[in-house]
Amino acid sequence: MTERDMADLPGYVSAHIQEKLAAQAYELGIRVDVRGDVVHLRGEVVSEERRREVEEIARGAAQGREICNEVHVVAVGAPDDEERLS
């Protein structure tokens, strides 16, 4: 199997995109599913900026496939009380 053939396998594309997300955005919790020519991104990030960054990195690694960004922004607030260690 040639490298070109490998690039067409959904599992290879998914792993390639996840590798790029880990290396460039330090995002390990984004699920990447490839169905046909569409790459689905799912997970949670802390800001809209991070959501766009994840999409840009995925788009660059997706080899021309369409990106369906289903990543949600989750607000992370300050703790209510001081944390106590026992």
Rank of each mutant, 00 (worst) to 15 (best):
A62H: 02
G36I: 03
L21N: 05
L9G: 01
L85W: 05
V76L: 11
R52V: 08
L85P: 01
S86E: 13
G29R: 11
N69G: 07
V74R: 15
P10M: 09
E44H: 10
M1H: 14
L9F: 10
D5W: 10
K20G: 00
V71Q: 06
V74A: 13
V13E: 01
R35Y: 04
S47R: 11
L28H: 11
R51W: 06
A25Q: 04
I17G: 04
P79Y: 04
E48H: 12
D81G: 08
A22T: 04
Y26K: 11
H40M: 02
E49K: 14
V13S: 00
A22I: 02
R84G: 11
G77L: 10
I67E: 03
L9E: 14
E3I: 08
H40F: 11
G60I: 05
V39W: 03
E48F: 07
L9K: 14
E70P: 00
M1F: 12
R50L: 08
H40K: 08
S86C: 05
S47A: 09
T2E: 02
V54G: 05
I67N: 02
Q18S: 12
R31H: 12
V76Y: 13
Q24D: 08
D33G: 03
D37K: 03
K20R: 12
I30F: 02
Q18K: 15
N69M: 09
Q63K: 15
G29Y: 12
D5M: 10
H72E: 15
A23D: 09
V54W: 01
C68E: 05
E44C: 05
R65T: 06
E70N: 15
R42S: 13
L28W: 06
H72C: 05
A75L: 12
V54T: 06
V45L: 10
Q24E: 09
A15N: 12
E27T: 06
A75M: 08
V54D: 01
V46R: 15
R31C: 00
V38L: 05
R42W: 10
D5L: 13
E70R: 04
V13C: 06
E82M: 09
P10A: 07
E53S: 07
A75H: 15
Y12V: 15
A7R: 15
V73S: 11
G43E: 10
I67P: 03
V32H: 06
L9S: 09
E49N: 14
G36Q: 03
V34T: 06
I57V: 15
G36V: 01
A58E: 06
G77W: 11
G64W: 12
E83D: 13
I57H: 01
H16A: 12
Y12M: 06
A15S: 15
E49V: 14
E49S: 13
R4H: 13
D81Q: 13
A61N: 09
R31W: 04
V54H: 05
R84L: 13
L28I: 02
A75P: 09
A62Y: 08
A25E: 00
D33V: 07
N69L: 08
R59D: 07
G11Q: 14
V32N: 03
V73N: 02
D8G: 10
V38C: 07
D8M: 13
A25M: 04
L28S: 10
P79M: 07
L21Q: 05
E55Q: 14
H16V: 04
M6G: 03
E49T: 14
R65L: 11
E66T: 12
M6P: 05
V39M: 04
P79W: 00
Q24Y: 00
K20W: 07
D80R: 11
E49Q: 15
